Amino acid sequence: MKKFICALTFALIYQFGFAQSTVLDKEKLLEFYQTQRYADAAQYLQSIYPADTKDVKALSQMAYCNMMAGKLPDAEKSYLTINEIQPNTLPVLFNLANINSRRGNDLKAKSYLENIVKLDSTNFNAVKQLAGLIKDSLQLKIAYLKKANSLNTADADVATDLAQGYRDLQQWALGYQVLKVAIAADTSNLFLLQAQLPFANELKKYKEVIYVGEKLLKDGADANVVKDVGKAYYYLKNYEKCISYYQMLEKVDKQTEMTLYMMTLSYRELKNLDMATTYAKKTIEEGISPNTSTYYNLLAGLQESNGKLTTAASSYKRGLTFSENSSIYYRLGLLYDLKLKQVKNAFTYYNLYLASKPDAKVEKDQIDYVTGRLADLKSLTK
Rank of each mutant, 00 (worst) to 15 (best):
L119H: 12
D253W: 07
L193Y: 07
L138F: 08
N125G: 10
K180Q: 15
N224Y: 01
E202P: 01
I142K: 00
K237G: 05
K237W: 09
L140F: 06
V212R: 02
N238I: 11
V226C: 05
V252Y: 03
T187K: 15
F199R: 00
A185S: 15
L203V: 05
Q129T: 09
A173P: 02
Y166N: 02
K118Y: 10
K128F: 14
S150Q: 13
I116M: 06
D186H: 07
Y166L: 03
L169C: 06
T160L: 10
Q139Y: 09
K254T: 04
N115M: 08
V225I: 15
G132W: 06
K128Y: 11
A195P: 03
Y235F: 15
G165D: 01
Q164S: 07
T160K: 09
I142E: 01
I116W: 06
Y245W: 10
K141N: 04
D222K: 10
D136H: 12
Y234Q: 06
D120G: 11
D186E: 14
A143Q: 13
A143E: 13
G175S: 08
I183P: 11
D222R: 09
S121T: 14
L145A: 05
Q196D: 08
G132M: 09
L151T: 10
I116E: 01
K254Y: 04
I243P: 04
S188A: 15
A126I: 12
Y233K: 04
Q139C: 08
V209F: 01
L193R: 14
G175D: 01
A221T: 11
K227P: 00
Y235L: 07
A223E: 09
K218S: 11
L174N: 05
Q139S: 13
Y234D: 04
G213C: 05
S137V: 08
A182L: 09
N189G: 13
E202K: 01
Q129L: 11
Q139K: 14
Y235P: 03
G213W: 00
Q177C: 07
K207S: 04
L193T: 11
D186S: 15
L217H: 02
G230C: 10
K118P: 07
L236V: 08
L151H: 09
G165R: 01
N115I: 04
D157Q: 13
V252D: 07
V158F: 03
L151F: 12
N152M: 10
N152H: 09
S150T: 12
Y206N: 02
K205M: 00
A221P: 03
Y144K: 04
A163R: 02
Y166E: 00
K205L: 03
R167Y: 04
K180E: 12
N152P: 09
R167I: 01
Q171I: 04
L138T: 13
Y233G: 03
D161C: 05
D161W: 03
L249Q: 06
